[in-house]
Simulated scan of single mutants.
Amino acid sequence: MQDIKPLLVFSAVLEHGSMHAAAAALGMTPSAVSQHISRLEALHGVKLLQRSTRRLIPTDAGLSIGSYCRRLQQTLADTQQALDNLKTEAAGEVRITLTSSLIHAPAWQSAFKRLQHEFPAIRPVLHLNDHLADLQQESFDIALRGGDTALDAPDLIARPLAVWPWRICAAPAYLDAHEPITEPEALHRHRWINRLPIHVLMRRGVETYPLHIDNSLYCNQLSAVHTLTLGGFGLSLQLAGEISTALAEGSLQTVLPEWTLPTVSLYAVTSYRVQSAKTEAVLRVLQQSFAAAQTAAP
């Protein structure tokens, strides 16, 4: 088998942008990095880099071979991680980022209880954040994300957890104190609470109604929307999986339940496909708990 080290060195040069930066990352000298690249070019008779005094620019051949080199680097890293997992127990800190409203979801609470019971050596560290977190820059192990943005970055691995529909909801006290809502047009005459303007398409059979609510009480945190809705301050749009307990207890009611709204797909997202034993354990519990909650939903 041919030596793969020059391929890995070339991948590092592309990643870091210079011989010196790649050398620092690899623990080598810039001269050794340069020799590996020269050897690779000589061996295959192609020029991979255009060198200048200020920067390195990959040639077309360099760009083409670079994608394979990065894949090789990732495969080796995954293999090493898999080997490490065989001798690593499910213990230690796991950093999880999730939206502030997801904390109310029975599926999440069930998963959290299971983790405490089945894996007491795992220490979940929760970061409630309603903005899209950067897993690599912020060193998160798992991000719970909903919607299309979960799949935006090609280097992230998204594991499906659930598909939840939006619900228009309000506290019974609010509904009792205001005019009845029998048609979508009446929604515009009520107070709303939200983090973002509402633009959704409602459906009832073959009928459709585009609902646009721009003027509402603004909250920068989704959990505040949930709390204020429970307090009777107005209507809000919330995910069915996050309010199922409140609906079952009667502290919230669905408005216009005969109308359906769009759904949101929820994922557990990680930076790499192969994970440590502790992260794999958390992912497994999350997937099982959310699947069970989805099956039990009416």
Rank of each mutant, 00 (worst) to 15 (best):
Q50V: 07
H44I: 08
S34A: 09
L86T: 09
D60V: 12
H36Q: 02
D60K: 12
A24P: 09
S18F: 05
A77L: 12
S34H: 02
T29N: 10
W108R: 04
H104N: 06
A21D: 13
Q50R: 09
A77R: 13
M19P: 00
G27C: 10
T29S: 14
E15M: 02
H36E: 03
P106Y: 10
S18T: 03
A22N: 14
H44R: 14
W108E: 03
Q74R: 10
R51W: 05
M28S: 00
A107N: 01
V13G: 09
I37V: 06
R71E: 15
E41R: 06
A61I: 01
H16M: 03
T97H: 04
L72D: 04
A107C: 02
L43M: 02
I57Q: 08
R71S: 15
G66F: 06
T99N: 10
R55F: 04
L48V: 04
H104M: 08
L49T: 01
T79E: 15
Y68I: 05
A25P: 00
I65E: 09
K47D: 01
G17P: 13
P30K: 14
L48D: 02
Q80T: 07
L72S: 03
V33F: 07
L49R: 00
G45D: 05
G27E: 09
I103L: 04
D78Y: 00
G45K: 01
D78C: 07
L76K: 04
I65Y: 13
I37M: 12
L98Q: 13
I65C: 14
M19A: 08
A105I: 03
A105M: 06
A42C: 04
A61F: 04
I57Y: 00
E15G: 10
I96G: 06
G92S: 08
A82S: 15
T29E: 08
I103G: 00
L48Y: 05
P106M: 12
H36N: 02
V46Y: 07
H16Y: 12
A107D: 02
R71L: 15
Q73T: 15
Q35S: 12
